[in-house]
Design a protein around this nucleic acid. Structure first.
Lengths: 105, 105
DNA sequence: CGAACTGTTCGTATATTTGCGAACTGACAT
DNA sequence: ATGTCAGTTCGCAAATATACGAACAGTTCG
């Protein structure tokens, strides 16, 4: 049997999953998705963590591509990056739905 | 604005996401989903990592609930845990699809 | 019994993640 | 120029994750 390398799909799914792998980031994304875009302050007001930590989580989400930030002095407005969001949705959709034969005795 | 606590949904999504947050584990799940259940050795043969590491990843996946292992001496047979798999699929499905208004100027 | 085979666990090293307060930056107002 | 407001970055500590070889454990077979 041949060793396989991880495909770029494997890596992409893992990266998006890593972005979702913390409750704070799930909450942030849900918050952004529910209202329209919102400011850092709104997120900080709502989350039970220090602003430095909020900023860190937002950086992780930005780097994953799932959100984007826009500086509107003196505030920063964040919103979902719809393009990449759709990519992630499709990746997870295919991943979870293309299971054919799983029955296991 | 009131601080919110992370909901159990947030935690659950984060936990399943964490299980998917490594290419090896994505590859394992894909492998299990494609063929029927299979043995540790099959996975080890295919993955580019040491068997101790494979075992560790399998433990993570077992703890997440996404897979289950059954001892069939002298081998161990792994397969997807369909119940929890469906739970995860639904969680991610709702999470990614219930976005209404994201347009951002 | 002992050898062989399959997988897990242990011990360890290194890297990444998470969290916070304090210090900083940039824009704007006074 | 000084102060203020909104966020980011820095520096650090603690916890978790990743990886491996070596040692171990359970079955089966000679």
């Amino acid at each position: 049997m041949e060793k396989i390398d991880y495909t770029s799909r494997h890596h992409q799914i893992a990266l998006y999953a890593k972005a979702l792998a913390h409750p704070a980031r799930v909450a942030i994304l849900e918050f952004l998705a529910a209202r329209e875009c919102c400011f850092f302050g709104n997120l900080h007001d709502v989350l039970p963590i220090a602003k430095a930590t909020v900023s860190q989580h937002l950086t992780v989400l930005k780097e994953s591509g799932l959100i984007q930030g826009e500086i509107k002095p003196p505030q920063v407005r964040y919103c979902i990056n719809k393009e990449n969001w759709d990519v992630a949705r499709d990746l997870f959709g295919v991943f979870f739905n293309d299971l054919k034969k799983i029955e296991c005795s």
